[in-house]
Design a binder for these strands. Structure first.
Lengths: 199, 199
DNA sequence: TGAATTCCTGCCCCAAAGTACAATGTGCTT
DNA sequence: AAGCACATTGTACTTTGGGGCAGGAATTCA
């Protein structure tokens, strides 16, 4: 895979040259990039410019890795969703950079270490909330529904117990059952779920 | 990296043996797995069992790849968020399987082709939904808004701390300020408030 | 320069939430 | 009669959440 660095700096950063001595450098992309590896330096680039660049490169058949001066989660998500296959810091060390083409060639994806984990955690959380969007309180028993509704109203266990005239312990028992059935972790996620259901 | 296949089938599937002739096979995990590559066959495994297995393996220092009989986006997210580094179909071809350790060794992550893209697209959409609209949180400082949004997404204090790269204690400090400003008692009511703002 | 925010953090404490394990009772179905 | 789902409660335990008190660091503003 041939390496192309696209940067406003007009020159290869030292680390890049060290990693890939015979890489090409340019300020913009042109022509077919089939099976090429394009490194996009996001420094001095507006969001839209970067997005457009990614789109052009992937359309031209390239594998795209974005090098950001300020790696951030939301940024990584945006960039990868637009077709980039990798996301790293511009100052990533040469020997690390060299690993990236190897990973990509084998169908892998490369993300700034740590970013991946936190990214997936967020995804999971959002996923849990939106995918269970089936509005399903129907799997709950009458009593459980009552408890769930109250939680959705922001009530504490003690308040729920008083409202339903049962023990706090019983409220907890119902909650445990509810969490299990709706596959949520705690009352916050339950509250969110309940309120989304009565849209 | 030594290969361990954990499967209920009790034997190596042909493709696995073809890919890694000298791999070990077992029905369960034991001992230190430092720097080992553990392949978890998700067939015939309950969700909880799989999760527990992943946790045990990663805790023991292993790299975990989950092989699913029915690859799905939500499943992949769950599994990766729990610490797996790869996710593939159980019937993945031998030559493709062999690429995976190479990717992992170099800090990459391996996902069933196509899964990654659609996964990130969804993440982005959800991200936009939950971060774009900030309703009547105008009295909050930037940092407080960030915390509030995450609570609205159902995050725990620990998760918020990790996401924002601060201490749990700081999260609590922000929360105390938020509760005061928005006149809510706890995170449940805050979550409700936040979500009502962006309906 | 000093005052005021905002952000970050530590230690300690207490209350609330949630889990594990166990048990009782009621009513309905097979 | 036996089995099952549901509701209820208990004891004891671990984990989170939240707050009081105190302080450091950075920024801005008068």
């Amino acid at each position: 895979m041939d390496n192309f660095f696209i940067t406003r700096a007009g020159r290869l950063r030292e680390r890049w040259r060290e990693a890939f001595p015979d890489a090409c450098v340019a300020e913009t992309v042109a022509g077919s990039l089939d099976n090429k590896l394009v490194w996009l330096d996001a420094s001095f680039l507006e969001r839209q410019e970067l997005d457009a660049m990614i789109e052009r490169c992937t359309a031209a058949g390239a594998n795209v890795v974005v090098l950001s001066p300020t790696p951030a989660e939301a940024d990584a998500v945006r960039v990868m969703a637009r077709g980039a296959r990798g996301y790293a810091h511009v100052f990533t060390r040469a020997d690390t950079l060299r690993q990236i083409p190897i990973v990509l060639e084998r169908g892998g994806v490369w993300l700034e270490p740590g970013l991946m984990a936190s990214l997936l955690r967020i995804t999971e959380r959002l996923h849990a909330l939106s995918s269970g969007h089936s509005g399903d309180l129907s799997s709950l028993t009458e009593r459980e529904k009552a408890v769930a509704q109250l939680v959705g109203g922001g009530a504490s266990n003690r308040e729920i117990a008083q409202d339903l005239d049962i023990t706090e312990r019983t409220v907890k028992a119902h909650l445990t059952a509810i969490f299990e059935k709706l596959e949520v972790r705690d009352r916050v996620q339950l509250a969110i779920r309940v309120r989304d259901c009565l849209n």
